[in-house]
Design a binder for these strands. Structure first.
Length: 414
DNA sequence: TCTGGGGTCCTAGGACCC
DNA sequence: TCTGGGGTCCTAGGACCC
C-alpha cells in the first residue's frame, strides 16, 4: 500500500506558522510579482477566491473580506518543506518527495493502516505545525484519489478494498484524476465520460489511442495494478531554466542586459549546486501576451558552448552573446528566459588539448562567490553586469520575514 | 499599472545509418 | 521494368505535474 501525504494549503499554512493571528482568518499567497493567487486558506476558498485569480482583479474582494495577502516566499516554504519531509521519513524507509508539499510513502508490510496513517498525520502536525492529509491505497493514482477525499473529511482515508475503491470512483470527477489535465478533461467530458469509474470502464485500446501510454498506466492504476513505481532517488536534471517576469516591462537594452546577466548568474549557481555543466545555453525574450495592444514577439536563440561550463562568468558571457543576437528595438519586454540544456556531470567534463580553455580561474572565482553568498546572504557579491539599480526586479509588496533562514528575522521572545 | 516558474514524459516525423 | 527493411537519433510540439 502507498500513502500520499499532502500538506493542506501549504504556502498559506507556512505564512501562518509564526503568526497565529492569521489562524482562522482568510489568507492568500500570490505568485511572483504579486501576480496571481497560488495558495488559499480554507476561509479564502469559502469566500470564493479561485486558484490562479489575478490579484489586481480581486483587490476589492480582498479588501471587503479582510483577506491577508502574502507575496510568495520560497526560502521559507522550502525550509518548512524540509522539516515536514524529515518527519515523514521516520515512518517508512521508502519515501518519494514528489513536490514541495507532497510525499509518497511505501507502507507495504505495515498493519492497521488507518491507525498508522493517523499517527503519521498527528506527528507531522505536532512537530512542524503544518496540517497534512493522508490518502492510502494500492497505487499512486488511487492514493491521490484517497488524499483528495481525506482533505474533505478528517484528514485520513484508506482505500483497502475493491468495494471502497469502486464506491469512491463512481462519483469522482474525471478531471480531478492525477494525469488528466485540461485538454484530456475537455476531450473526455465532450464524449460524456465524466467520472473516474466511466474512464475505468473504457477498453484499454481506446485509452492507449486517445491518452497514450501515460493514460494506460493511469487506467491500470485505477484498477489497482501498480505501474508508477516510487522514485526513491532523484534523477539528475536534463535541463535547467531561470525565467522570471520583470517588475515592469522594459525595452531598454542595458536593463535587459542586467536582467539576463542576473538570471544567467542564478542559473550558473543552480548548475553548480547540482554539480552539472551545460553544453548548450538558450536565451529567449518575451513581450507581454496579456497586452495585445503592444506589438508581440518572442525571439530566441540557442548558443552551443565550446566547453561544458557552470561558472558564472562563462554562462553570463554566453547569455549576453545570445541577447545581443535576438534583441529587437521598439518592443517592450516582460520577461527573459535563460535555459541550460545538454547537461553533463561536472566531474565528467572532457578536457580538450586543442582548447585554450581558461575557465579554471572562473570556476575558482564562482566557488568563492558561492561561499561568500552562502555565508552573508544571496546577492552579497555579484558580477558587475548584473547592475546595481535593477529596476526590473520582482514586485514583492507583501513579503513575510525569513523566520527560519535569516538570523535577523528569527522571532524574539521575552 | 497589474496576469507565475520550473520541470517531466510521449509522439510523430525527418535525417541518417547499413 | 523494377526502387527494401530495419534501426537510431534528434527535434518540435503537445500533454501533464506541482
Amino acid at each position: 500500500m502507498i500513502a500520499l501525504a499532502d500538506c493542506n494549503n501549504f504556502y498559506a499554512s507556512c505564512e501562518r506558522l509564526f503568526r497565529p493571528k492569521y489562524i482562522g482568518v482568510p489568507v492568500v499567497v500570490l505568485s511572483n510579482n504579486d501576480g496571481c493567487v497560488i495558495a488559499r486558506s480554507n476561509e479564502a476558498k469559502e469566500i470564493g477566491i479561485v486558484m490562479g485569480a489575478p490579484y489586481f482583479q480581486i483587490k476589492d474582494i480582498i479588501k471587503e473580506n479582510n483577506i491577508a495577502v502574502f507575496s510568495s516566499h520560497y526560502t521559507l516554504y522550502g525550509d518548512i518543506s524540509a522539516r515536514v519531509m524529515t518527519n515523514l521519513a521516520r515512518f517508512t524507509p521508502e519515501v518519494e518527495v514528489y513536490s514541495i508539499d507532497e510525499c509518497f510513502l511505501n507502507l507495504k508490510g505495515f498493519d492497521n493502516l488507518q491507525d498508522y496513517a493517523t499517527e503519521i498525520r498527528t506527528s507531522v502536525v505536532t512537530n512542524t505545525g503544518i496540517p497534512i492529509s493522508l490518502g492510502v491505497a494500492p497505487t499512486k493514482v488511487l492514493a491521490k484519489v484517497a488524499n483528495k477525499k481525506a482533505k474533505k473529511g478528517n484528514g485520513v482515508m484508506v482505500l483497502d478494498s475493491d468495494e471502497k475503491i469502486s464506491k469512491i470512483l463512481i462519483d469522482y470527477p474525471v478531471e480531478d484524476l492525477w494525469g488528466i489535465g485540461r485538454q484530456y478533461a475537455n476531450k473526455l467530458i465532450s464524449m460524456d465520460i465524466k467520472t473516474a469509474e466511466q474512464l475505468r470502464q473504457l477498453p484499454i485500446d481506446w485509452v492507449q489511442k486517445n491518452l497514450t501510454i501515460v493514460g494506460v498506466r493511469m487506467w491500470r492504476e485505477l484498477w489497482g495494478e501498480s505501474c508508477i513505481p516510487l522514485k526513491l532517488s532523484l534523477d539528475p536534471k536534463k535541463g535547467m531554466c531561470t525565467s522570471r517576469a520583470f517588475g515592469k516591462m522594459t525595452g531598454d537594452y542595458v536593463e535587459l542586459q542586467e536582467a539576463t546577466a542576473s538570471y544567467a548568474s542564478r542559473l550558473a549557481m543552480k548548475l553548480r549546486r547540482e554539480a552539472r555543466c551545460a553544453t548548450v545555453l538558450s536565451v529567449r525574450l518575451l513581450t507581454n501576451r496579456f497586452n495585445p495592444s503592444h506589438p508581440q514577439c518572442y525571439p530566441s536563440i540557442t548558443v552551443p558552448l565550446a566547453h561544458p561550463v557552470n561558472n558564472t562568468n562563462d554562462i553570463i558571457k554566453a547569455a549576453l552573446f545570445g541577447l545581443k543576437k535576438i534583441y529587437l528595438r521598439g518592443y517592450l519586454f516582460q520577461k527573459v528566459e535563460v535555459m541550460a540544456t545538454g547537461l553533463i556531470p561536472q566531474n565528467e567534463v572532457q578536457l580538450n588539448i586543442f582548447d585554450k580553455f581558461d575557465g579554471i580561474k572562473y570556476d575558482k572565482l564562482s566557488q568563492i562567490m558561492d561561499k561568500v553568498n552562502m555565508h552573508f546572504g544571496a546577492g552579497t557579491i555579484k558580477i558587475a553586469t548584473e547592475g546595481t539599480k535593477q529596476r526590473w526586479t520582482l514586485r514583492r509588496d507583501f513579503l513575510s520575514p525569513e523566520y527560519t533562514t535569516n538570523w535577523d528575522d528569527i522571532i524574539k521572545t521575552k
